[in-house]
Design a binder for these strands. Structure first.
Lengths: 333, 333
DNA sequence: CTGTTAGCGCATTCAT
DNA sequence: ATGAATGCGCTAACAG
C-alpha cells in the first residue's frame, strides 16, 4: 500500500505539500497540485486513517452497543443511526451484547482501545466492570432506552409509560374491559414503564385487572406466543391484549390463531415499536410506533455535539410514540 | 487518556518494559511486573489500538457491507458474523449500502482508509468505481450471495437454484399444479437462481407456468403483498406460490388473507430464508432455511485464513438450504 | 508558495 | 532482566 512519502518522492515534492493538497489545507500552485493529484491517482494512493487518527486524536468512528441486532426494533434503530452517522462522516462499529453484561464490558473495553470518538449504548444490564469502565471514561456517550446506574450521560428514549397508557386507552375506547398485558422482562425499565402506563389507563377507567392478566415474558415472538397460551388458560379470558413489543404481539397473533380465535373479533391485540413487518402481519398489527428514525437522528446529533466538545449540561430527550391503529384491534363482541 | 510513557515514568521503568508486561512478550521480573501492573490499574491505562495498528499494520477490524440491515435475513447473518468475529478478536464495522452502488463505493473507500484487515461484501450492484477500487486492492475479502464482475475473491452462498427447486418440488409433491412465483428483483442473481430452480422443478414435473405466474418484485413485505394482489387478478389463479424470500411471503400471506383466502386451504405459500419471524407468522410459514449461522461461521473462517496469509486458490463454498414445512403449505382442495 | 521537522503511542531491534 | 532508540504514516508548526 502506497504511502504519502512515496507519493511525495514520485511527485518531487515534500510530504507536507502532498498532505495539503489532499486536505485542501493551504494554498498550492496549480502546477504542483496537478502533479500530485496525478501521482496519487497513478499510484492509487489511499491515505491511512490509522495514522491520521493517531495524529489527530479522532477516529471518526462511533461504537454502538445493542442487546440484539436480530430484534427488528434494534435493527431499524441501528439503520437510522448508521445512516445519520455516515452523513456526518462517521462509521459505526456494531456490538451485540446478547444481554450478557460480561460480553458488554469486554466490548466496551475494546471500543475504548480503538479510541472511538463516541458511544451509543443500549445497555444490557450493568455489571461492576461496566460501571467502572464507564465511570472513569470521558468518551462522549449517549444512553438509549436504558439508563445505567452511576453513569452520567445524555439519555434518549421514547416515552414508554405514555406509550403503554395510550395503547391501553385505545383498547378501552374500543369498549374492552378485560384487558391483559404481555410484558417484556421485569428487570428492564422500558418493560416496566409500559406496564405502568397500562395500569394507569386501567385505573383511570375504573377497571381492574385480575392478577393473571399481567404476564412477563421475553421480547421475542416465542415469548409472546407462550404468554398468550398462558392467558388463554385463564377462567375469564381477556378480550384484548397489550403486548410489550411487536415481536411478542406477532407471537400472540400466532397463538390466538392456533387456538381458533379470530382477530380482532374474538381478541384484540396491540403491539409496540411498529417494526416494518407489523404492517404485514395477519391481520395487520395495531401498535404504538416508536419514532425510530427520529431517534436515530437525535441520538447521533446529541453525540456529535458532545464529540465537538459541547459542555452543556446533561440532556434527557423524551420522544413521543404514536398510535397506529390497524386491523388487530376492534370493539369486543 | 494515559499513555504508555506516563505509565513507564510513574513505574520507574522504560516503555519497552511496560509494553512487554502488557503483551507478555518477554521475561520480566515479578517485582517489576507487579509494579507496572499496579500503575496501569491505578492510572486506568488502556492501550491505544490506533497506535498499535499503525505499528503492526493490523486493525483487528473487518468491514461488513450489506444492502440493508433491516432485512431480517441480513440482520441474522450479520449477527452470526459479528459473533464469530468477536470470538477471534475482531470487530465489525457495519455498512448499509441501501442498494446504492455509489454509497457502496464511498463506504468501501472509507473502509480501506481505515485499513480494515478484511472485508465481507454482500454487493448491491457493481459500478465502475467499486470494481476499480476492488480490482487494485488486495484486502482479504469474501463475497456473499453475489459475485462482482472482475473481482477475484472467495465466495460463499447457499445454493439458490436448488433451494428454489426444492421449494417448488415441495409444492408439487403436495399435489399443486398451478404454481406461481414471486421473485425478487430481476437484476439480482440470487433471485434469478431461485427462479431457475422453480422452473426446473416445473419442467421436471411436466408442468408449465402461464407467463403471468412469474412476477418480479422487491425483497420486502410490501413487494410480496403487491405481487400477490397482482396474481389474484389472473383469470386462472394459482393454488400455490413460491416467494423469493420470507418478507415477501409474509406480505403475500397478508394480501391473501385480505382477499378472503384461507391459507393453506385456498392457497399454499412457501418462503425463503427462514427468518426468526417465519415461525410465528399466521399461519406459520413453510420456507427454505438458509444456514445463516453456519454461513456466518464459514465466512469469518475463510476471511481469517486469508488475513493470516493463506495463499490457497480462490474458494467457492456452496451451502445447502433445508426445507422447513410448517402450516402455510398443504395439498390443494 | 513550499520544505523541514517534530511527534502522535506503541512494538521491537539492538545494546548492555 | 532491562533500556535506548527507531519508525509505522501522517499533520502542522515553523522557517524560508
Amino acid at each position: 500500500m502506497a504511502t504519502m512519502k512515496q507519493v511525495a518522492e514520485r511527485a518531487g515534492v515534500s510530504t507536507s505539500t502532498v498532505s495539503h493538497v489532499i486536505n485542501n489545507t493551504r494554498v498550492v500552485s496549480d502546477d504542483v497540485r496537478e502533479r500530485v493529484t496525478a501521482v496519487i491517482a497513478e499510484m492509487r494512493y489511499i491515505p491511512s486513517a490509522v495514522a491520521r487518527s493517531l495524529k489527530n486524536d479522532r477516529t471518526h468512528t462511533i461504537g454502538m452497543m445493542v442487546p440484539n441486532n436480530s430484534n427488528p426494533y434494534f435493527a431499524e434503530l441501528i439503520q437510522g443511526i448508521e445512516d445519520a452517522a455516515f452523513k456526518v462522516g462517521y462509521n459505526v462499529i456494531l456490538c451485540n451484547a446478547y444481554d450478557d453484561p460480561r460480553k458488554q464490558a469486554a466490548y466496551l473495553r475494546v471500543l475504548i482501545e480503538k479510541r472511538i470518538d463516541g458511544m451509543i449504548l443500549v445497555a444490557s444490564g450493568a455489571d461492576e466492570e461496566l460501571a467502572r469502565l464507564l465511570a472513569h471514561q470521558q468518551t462522549p456517550m449517549v444512553l438509549v432506552d436504558r439508563e445505567v446506574a452511576g453513569v452520567q450521560a445524555d439519555f434518549v428514549e421514547a416515552d414508554h409509560e405514555t406509550g403503554g397508557y395510550l395503547a391501553t386507552r385505545h383498547l378501552i375506547e374500543l369498549g374492552h374491559r378485560a384487558i391483559a398485558c404481555i410484558s417484556g422482562p421485569r428487570d428492564l425499565p422500558p418493560s416496566l414503564d409500559r406496564v405502568n402506563g397500562y395500569r394507569r389507563a386501567l385505573a383511570e377507567a375504573g377497571l381492574d385487572a385480575p392478577s393473571g392478566y399481567l404476564v412477563y415474558s421475553n421480547f421475542t415472538s416465542e415469548g409472546g406466543y407462550r404468554a398468550l397460551q398462558q392467558l388463554l388458560k385463564l377462567g375469564k379470558r381477556p378480550t384484548a391484549v397489550f403486548a410489550g413489543n411487536d415481536l411478542m404481539a406477532i407471537g400472540a397473533l400466532c397463538a390466538a390463531s392456533e387456538a381458533g380465535l379470530r382477530i380482532p373479533s374474538d381478541l384484540s391485540v396491540i403491539g409496540y415499536d411498529d417494526i416494518a413487518l407489523a404492517s404485514y402481519s395477519t391481520p395487520r398489527l395495531s401498535t404504538m410506533a416508536q419514532p425510530k428514525y427520529d431517534m436515530g437522528q437525535r441520538i447521533v446529533g446529541m453525540l456529535m455535539e458532545r464529540i465537538m466538545g459541547s459542555a452543556q449540561p446533561l440532556r434527557r430527550e423524551l420522544l413521543q410514540t404514536r398510535l397506529v391503529a390497524r386491523q388487530s384491534t376492534a370493539a369486543p363482541r
